[in-house]
Design a binder for these strands. Structure first.
Lengths: 180, 180
DNA sequence: GTCTATACATGGATAGAC
DNA sequence: GTCTATCCATGTATAGAC
């Protein structure tokens, strides 16, 4: 087989982008099709329904998360540092997919999405816990990260905290870890 | 004049409830009307458009926030404690209105809502900062609180952290304040 | 694989009776 | 102040040509 249908991925990208930048309601089939540069009919060839589009994003999330968890584990810096740093919406693929799904799940009931997002959160927590030891501190780290996400999700256009901001956050959290 | 139109408030309550429990997309005029126990026409007498409904929630937010900020300031416990404790979605009026608006603003562009929510966040930050002194710690407190909110917003049906959870969080944060 | 045309359902909003 | 009836626009989805 050639390469994962690039037109299909393009449609998914377009869907993601509109949901993030303009909201779930704006992401109609026509809008997504136009953004992806195909016709409505063309889009529906790849994704036979709106739900199929959402399912496509979910699959994408699963793949990206796997890679992310590996990445968080390896490397010299602490997991906490990498974790906090990556929870700002820097436009990485995972961030975008996560944000889009977080929005979609809020706009109407998608019973399949919630558990997936919850599983991601749980995996993150375990990874942080393994490093810092204290469950309360781990919880705080994950919550702060969620807080950063929340702001990004609330307003993806808002200015993200810069490197110095992140540094100070990590250091502040570090005071808790050091004291154990 | 008699009393703030109770039927009007009922419609607003219904709108809020559906947005929170089932998502913005489900909160159609018919659905809201039915939930409020009036007809679509009846609803539209009080709120002449969907936008008017949203505006109604915004006004409500402003009122409730004013009361909340006062409440956070007075009383014997620390602001941090009250703040964290109240950021769990216990179903208070402010929580509900905030959650509903946070969802609405994500589903399509509502230029008027974002600044209002941002102002609320800023006010909370200032209040916490005044107590803890250290901007980095204050930031962390507010972010953790946002994280709690985020989880609630993501899934209002999920089990909320109980009193003991909150206690441990406050204590953990307290270790940072004490060390200053 | 991608397009156009069209059917069908539904959401927002108006008109006017009671 | 609340209701019913109705109009209009738009979003999802199907059919079938190319």
């Amino acid at each position: 087989m050639p390469r994962a249908n690039s037109s299909r991925e393009g449609v998914l990208d377009a869907f993601e982008q509109i949901v993030i930048e303009q909201g779930e309601r704006v992401a109609t089939l026509s809008a997504v099709a136009e953004q992806a540069g195909v016709s409505k009919g063309g889009l529906l060839y790849h994704f036979s329904s709106k739900q199929a589009l959402v399912d496509g994003l979910l699959e994408r999330l699963v793949e990206l998360v796997e890679a992310d968890l590996e990445w968080l584990g390896e490397g010299p810096e602490s997991v906490v540092e990498r974790f906090i740093r990556s929870s700002t919406l820097d436009g990485s693929s995972l961030d975008r997919t996560f944000t889009a799904l977080a929005r979609i799940v809020q706009s109407t009931d998608h019973p399949d999405i919630r558990p997936a997002l919850a599983r991601v959160e749980a995996a993150w927590y375990e990874l942080v816990l393994a490093e810092v030891g204290d469950p309360d501190v781990a919880r705080l780290v994950v919550l702060a990260s969620d807080g950063l996400y929340f702001r990004g999700v609330l307003d993806p256009q808002a200015p993200q905290p810069d490197a110095a901001d992140i540094d100070r956050m990590v250091q502040t959290l570090g005071r808790l870890v050091a004291k154990d």
